[in-house]
Each structure stands twice: as C-alpha cells, then as structure tokens.
Design a protein around this nucleic acid. Structure first.
Lengths: 357, 357
DNA sequence: CTGAAAGCGCTTACAG
DNA sequence: CTGAAAGCGCTTACAG
C-alpha cells in the first residue's frame, strides 16, 4: 500500500518496471480473458499491490471506445418513486459493471440542455426518466450508436426505446373500481398535460367511466407538482358539485390532495370522499394515507431498461424497443370498495375484476 | 447536423481537415482562453457544426489529468433528505462544470467496496453522504491528491473533510423545548448507533434534560430505518411507563413512529404524546404530520461541500476542513409548546429560547 | 496566431 | 505466452 507512491496515480509502465515485465503484460493481467501466464500474472499482481496500482478507466475508455458509463437524466426526485428507481438502477447497472453519470433537474421539457455534456463523456447509453428529447438529438444518438431508453414516458414518434407500465389499463382499472364502489360523480387531478403517463391514465379512466354511461368528469391540473395539486384540490372541493371520488394522477400529488381534503375541508376519507392514486409509492403505504393505487413495478421496469441497454450495446444494433410492464391495483383504505373483484395476493388486497382483461 | 457523420464520433482531426486548419487550431477553438484568431475560430466552428463535432471529454481528461467528475456515494435514498441533497448537489456542481458519478446502496458501513471503481475513473473529488471510509483509503486519497468530503457525518479521526449541521445543539434545543412544554418523561428512538449524527443529537438532548435534573430516558433503536423505528415505537409505547415525549432521531423515522402511535395505540398527538424529529424533511411539513423538527439546511450544507471541493481541487492542497452549519428548530404541531421562546421568522415558528446560545 | 510533434495511459494486432 | 509498437483523441510546450 505504501512504497514509491508519489503525487499522481501509478501507471502500468511503473508497475511493469517494478515487476520486470513489459507494460503489455501489466495490461493483460488486468484484462479478463487476456493471454497471460500464471507466473507473470503473479509478478504483476505483486508489483501492482506494492505500488497501489489501479487501471486508469479513462485511458482504457479512450482506446476501447467504451466508457462503461450510462447517463441517467432524472427529475422529480421529490417524488419517492424516482429515488427508488435510481437506487434500483444503480444496483442493476453496477451488477453489469456499468456506472451512473447523473443529471438532475431537467423536468419533462426536452432534456436537450444536458445533452451536450453527456455526449462529451461518450456515454455508452442514456436513460431519460420522465424526460424526452428532440428528434434531432435522438437521431444523433442513433447515428452515433448510443442507445437511449425513455423511462416512464413514451413519445408518439418512434425516436427512442421506452419502458412504461400499462398506464391505460391502470386508469381503466381505477375507473371500474370506483364505479364498482358506488361512486356517481368523479374528479381527475391531472399530471403534466402532455406527458404520456398523464394522457394514458386519463384515457383509460375516462373509457371505463364512459362504459358505465358517465361522461362528466371534473378536471383539475396538478402537473405532478405538490403545490399545484393542492390548489387544484381546493378548487375542486370548494366547487358547487364536489365529486364523490377523485383520481389523482400520481401518489405524490394524492398525498397532498388527501391532506387538503381532510384538514382544510374536514372531509373523512373515504366516507365523504374517495381518493385513488398511482405509483404505489412509499407514502401511499403509510397508515395515515393508505392510498388505493396502481403499482408501477420498479424492479421490472428497471430490469427491462437495463436489458434493452445491454442488448443494444452488445449488438451495436439500435432498434427501438417498447416494453410495457404489467401493473396491479393495490387496494387500501382511501376509497370505498366495490362488492366484487378484490382478492388477496401475497398478503395484499388487489383488484382483479372478472371480465376485464 | 448532417454531413459525413458515420458510425462513431467525429474527431478534432476530421474537423481540422474539413476546415483546412491544423488539429491544434481545432483544439484551441474549444479551449477557453487559448490563443486563436477570430478568423480561424470561425472556420473551425463552422466545420464543427457541419460535422456535428463535440470534444471528447475522455481524451481531454487523459491529458489534462482532470476528469471534471465528482463521485457521490449516497444511501438512504428512501429518506427524502438525500434526494433533496442530491438534486442540490447536482445543481451546484453543474454550475461549476462538474459532473456527478453516483454510487448508491452503501449505507453507513465503510464505502470501501465502491472505492476501487471510483478511483479507476480518476474522479477529481469524492463526496460521501452518510458513509465513511477506512483510514487506509482516506490516506490513499490524500497521497493521490483527491479531496474527500464526508457529508452529514464526521469521524473521530481527522481523515477527511466534513460538513455537518450543529447536531449537538439541535439535540439540546429539542430537549429544552420539550422540558419547556411541561413534559416529564422522555424517550429517544435512536438512529444508527455509531453514526456521528446519532451520537451528537442524543448527547445534546441528554445534556439538556440533565440540566433539568432528568437522567432517565427510555431508549429504542431505529437505525434510521422505517421498520426498525416502528418496532422500537411499539416496544416503547406498549411498555409500562409510556413517555410523554419522544425524540426520534430523524423525521424519516418520526413519520413512522407517529403512525404507530396514532393508529396502533390510538394516541392523540400531541395531547397524549409529543413527538419531535430531525431534518425538517418534506413529510414533516405535510399537514398529517406537522413535525416539530430541527432543520439541516441543505442549501448551506451543499454549498459548503462544493466549496471545500473546489478549493482543494484548485489549490491542490488537501487540508481537511470541518464545516458546521447552523440550524433552527421549526415549531409545528406534533409536540406541546413551551410558554416562551417561540418566535416567528419568515412566516415560520421557530424556537429561540433566551440564554441558550 | 499557427502547426508539427510529443505524450497522457492504456489496448491490441503483430511477430516471435 | 510475451514484448515492441501503433494508436485512441486530445492538450500544450516549442519554434516560427
């Protein structure tokens, strides 16, 4: 650990000299699968240890043209869904010996501003969580051979691969659930207007209600933001026709809506008002909230994401893939229950109505 | 944007050829402050644009011996304090044109396992959030000239710089606050036993109570983990001498403790039981909880962290610094109030008792 | 201001 | 299995 270590890191040439072998031999010792005799290897390892040598990943990247770095662009970190995703992503990429270069603070608008930065580092892949990118840049990635995965978003144009959950189905399930629970009037507190998650969830919800002859839904907008959701809830709850049930586009907002309903309007949940949410995120499970919510299975979504990336990196073929992961409606205490369709699975109550595929 | 771009990125030599200048001229165009005539520069820029050139940061790093990458090792992402820190860190480092290489999942035990990885990338600095590292590795960083900052932890040995808030004072303030509120029996639900935050907060708390002749504190251990905190709360609340007030070592656990107290034991807060926490994290501010809590000012702490790093990178001098940021006790509804010492600052109630420095 | 050239620390044909 | 050598894409003295 000590020895001739001076300022600046030890190089393979120094190790080679110390071990009395060529620099190539040192390199081969640290390249899995390279041709090296056990004896030489042992000498190199000993010298490396003595000098405190560590291969320089930067130099390696330059020559192999692989940085083993994945850029992750992520916002909404105040919504626990994303930290959970980040942790799982870190775990899974580490297992593949990849590393995460993180860019935060770029919400749904295009992530173009960071693009320059991440391209300069010659990342091997890009994960955009709740962000999109312009088709110009998407095209640039394709010609450069860099795979891009949109996480929890899709775009109409087929510009990049994507991983989402069945948002449309989730919305439908929530609609069925609420109708089955005997609710007659409905509200929706929307996420970001032009995000695919918001559009799909709402479309599914509306479709389910329409099936039962209900076309009138009060709509407010929270833009996946706590304060805006609170304001939307205030407007909706103080209106002349307070709905019996509100679908809030994600749990992060639903928590805020519940607090407004209970503490500003004195409403009992679910006696006076039913609330359902989306994501099945940490606070949804806390007793104070107990939100009936559709899961977005993080583990499966992250697995799919890493899968696509590893696939395309290995093959060099950038063919956009769209993976959609199934989800489940978890039944808790924030909404009145339908008479049928609730079953217990692994100790949790889930809603699986008959005849709804 | 289009042009001769084929698979693989464009190099400075290609740009040089296209522009009819030397490769050096291209490099100088993209090096702020380098000596280049406006005319040459313009030619290069035009060629670069035509070819879609972006400097290769990897190659640059190799020769400048600066990666402009800061390694961030962070765990406890389920505690919103850390995502908030991460976001602020990202913002501040981006402003300095540094990037974040993120390593997650290494809790308070030494972060040695990731160390090898991050050193291979020749990071320019290391931030360890709620993690420490062995003195061997700390020493290695020092000889390598890589600054290390421990964020929200300190170690006894002076192995690395650190940024913390005044945990001891915070604990004392909470003790004074609770005694002032007329509570007579106390509990403490601890964080990780050998973390400096836990030790300092508890020491301050104990000291404040001792001043008032109170030496008996019931102690449970939550290890900064939700489930363990719940278990500790159950044990404490079902014991024969339920305390009147509990200091939970951070808000992340305090939320769980409040849910247990209310929904499993039917206790009214603060009528039957007062709870105080630490961090002033998102959920502490939610109406359902309204936790009286000591702030850890993220912006100031992150600023100090980046400051130390930039300083040491610029000077090349690695002299450990320990920055301690002041905090404030924010008064909300989870604990009974003392008669004096509460003042309003910027629309928030804070506790600033007389005679306590 | 400009270009030719050396060199950062590696990997990897190539020849032996 | 091993070493000498070329080369990855840059920055930066050096000489003009």
């Amino acid at each position: 650990m000590d020895g001739g270590v001076k300022r600046g890191a030890v190089t393979s040439s120094q190790v080679a000299e110390h071990a009395g072998v060529s620099q190539s031999a040192v390199s081969r010792t640290f390249t899995p699968g390279a041709s090296i005799s056990p004896k030489t290897r042992a000498k190199v390892l000993a010298a490396a240890k003595a000098l405190g040598y560590r291969p320089n990943a930067i130099a390696r990247s330059l020559i192999t043209n692989r940085s083993r770095i994945i850029a992750v662009v992520m916002a909404y970190l105040e919504n626990l869904f994303y930290p959970d995703v980040l942790e799982e992503l870190g775990r899974r990429l580490a297992a593949e010996n990849y590393h995460v270069l993180l860019f935060t603070g770029f919400k749904d608008r295009d992530s173009d501003p960071v693009f320059d930065q991440l391209m300069q580092y010659r990342v091997d892949g890009i994960i955009l969580a709740s962000t999109s990118l312009s088709s110009d840049l998407a095209e640039e990635c394709e010609t450069a051979g860099i795979p891009v995965v949109l996480f929890n978003r899709t775009t109409g144009k087929d510009v990049a691969s994507s991983v989402t959950s069945r948002n449309h189905e989730g919305g439908r399930l929530l609609g069925e659930f609420l109708v089955g629970g005997g609710h007659r009037t409905f509200g929706y507190i929307a996420g970001l207007a032009n995000s695919s998650t918001n559009r799909d969830r709402f479309a599914g919800f509306r479709e389910a209600l329409a099936r039962h002859g209900i076309d009138d839904i009060q709509v407010g907008t929270g833009n996946y933001n706590r304060q805006e959701a609170e304001a939307a809830a205030r407007a909706m709850l103080s209106g002349p026709n307070r709905p019996e049930a509100i679908f809030v586009a994600n749990d992060h907002m639903a928590v805020a809506v519940m607090d407004v309903a209970r503490y500003e309007f004195g409403l009992a949940i679910p006696a006076d008002l039913s609330i359902v949410g989306y994501d099945d995120v940490g606070p949804a499970r806390w007793t104070s909230y107990g939100i009936t919510s559709v899961t977005q299975p993080i583990s499966a979504m992250v697995e799919a994401t890493v899968d696509i990336l590893m696939d395309q990196i290995a093959s060099g073929e950038i063919e956009t893939q769209h993976r959609v992961v199934p989800s489940e409606l978890i039944v808790r205490t924030s909404a009145r229950l339908p008479k049928t369709g609730i079953v217990e699975v692994d100790g949790q109550l889930v809603y699986r109505p008959e005849g709804l595929k």
